[in-house]
Design a protein around this nucleic acid. Sequence first.
DNA 1: GTGCAGAAATTGGTTGGACCATTGAACCAC
DNA 2: GTGGTTCAATGGTCCAACCAATTTCTGCAC
Lengths: 243, 243
Amino acid sequence: MTDSLPPIQTTARDDAVLKALAGFVRQEALGPGEKLPTERILAERLKVSRNTVREALTRWEGLGLVERRQGSGTYLKAAVSPDMLHMPLTLAGGNDFAGLMRTLEIRRALEAEAAALCAVRAGKAEIAEIERKLDIMEEAFHARAGMSSEEDWEFHQSIYRASGNPLFEQIISAMHELFHRFWEHPLGVRDFGHASFPYHRTIFDCIAAHDPEGARAEALKLIATVEDDLKRGAANLKLSDRR
Amino acid sequence: MTDSLPPIQTTARDDAVLKALAGFVRQEALGPGEKLPTERILAERLKVSRNTVREALTRWEGLGLVERRQGSGTYLKAAVSPDMLHMPLTLAGGNDFAGLMRTLEIRRALEAEAAALCAVRAGKAEIAEIERKLDIMEEAFHARAGMSSEEDWEFHQSIYRASGNPLFEQIISAMHELFHRFWEHPLGVRDFGHASFPYHRTIFDCIAAHDPEGARAEALKLIATVEDDLKRGAANLKLSDRR
DNA sequence: GTGCAGAAATTGGTTGGACCATTGAACCAC
DNA sequence: GTGGTTCAATGGTCCAACCAATTTCTGCAC
């Protein structure tokens, strides 16, 4: 009965500051790396206290939009537009085996969908770019007799980009980052990722052939090999009783 | 109650504040909804200024971990542990039709995977809970001759919870929120979501039968009906040239 | 003029104190 | 009970400093 009576909004200083700042960035066409006005100037221009400006900037910093360097200034870290939507995720206990497996389940879902979408939408240029990254990766693999995480990652990124939906790259990138933050040298498993190598080309073949279901299936196989590697690592971990 | 809050070290004050607070929450076993010490008390106990406490809490607020209510206090909104990992995502341009379709592609991937995982992992208790939510939803549907977004959402949430991976609920919830922020009464499409109704029970049947691939397929069908509704809405929008 | 060390200005980080706006509980008349 | 009023508690904002890291300028030695 008393629906459609949302709480009213009287004050929202720091939100207003962020809105104004987003408009400023847009108007000045500022891009990543560029410096934005000092806190003192913002406070003066916006007619708010420096404290309020700081709270607003703290929010942006927490979202990774901005970087503050004491003595130097505040710099944009990413593109910013007035109609951004924020989706902060917190993963409790992400530095143990179970946490890693949880992120991998998300990645499995997204990786498969991205590969399928890519197979549908990728044009000639995108397919050529993916193949280029694939060649680089395979060359690195043979030269160093093992997976090169850098080149491997670039190959996957090219697929996300060709999916036509930037959200895939954003979300998977975030998980990729916290994946590597805690498991830089994954669990002492030798040849980590080795088993995933052949599937990179099979995925590409399906994409090039515009076969979405095939691409999805191959992507699932690839993730399955990574999960196996992780499980081996967990077994190792149990033996050595680390952590 | 507010013991065990020793003063903190030097440098990186606000991070240290958050660390101390996380430890405090852990020690006092505070859960969602509970109130934590006032800013003034925190400032005094931690031997930092109230502004520093506020910057730290602003960060947590931005991450959705905490809610501040003026005149009342600061309350936990989610479980918090010292070893959390944060993954803030900012999505550019989500309030137009193309943006909505992009979020729906992500949701399609996750919804399908969550349903499949749920079919594998859900125990008797989880299945009973899902069926309870389904019954409530169906009852509301027949009573009001249309989809009830509230009950519908609760049904889906129960599936995410039963998937055994809280990330599904976190990510999809975030997208669900921004979905409704801009399209509260979706696009003037009458009977929005009507077509999705039957698939709720077919999904449940597959889950109850522990049939992951069936659940995945039905979930994909459900999302497809939502996409169709959205496309119809976009067509309406073009006619009226709103926005 | 060049190069470099030290001074000075700039800028984010922190502090303490003050006041405002909202909330919620206690209290009071009716 | 119901509906106001008062009042203390609490988050929100503001101000005016000062600290610490960085950058820029200055002036001296060469």
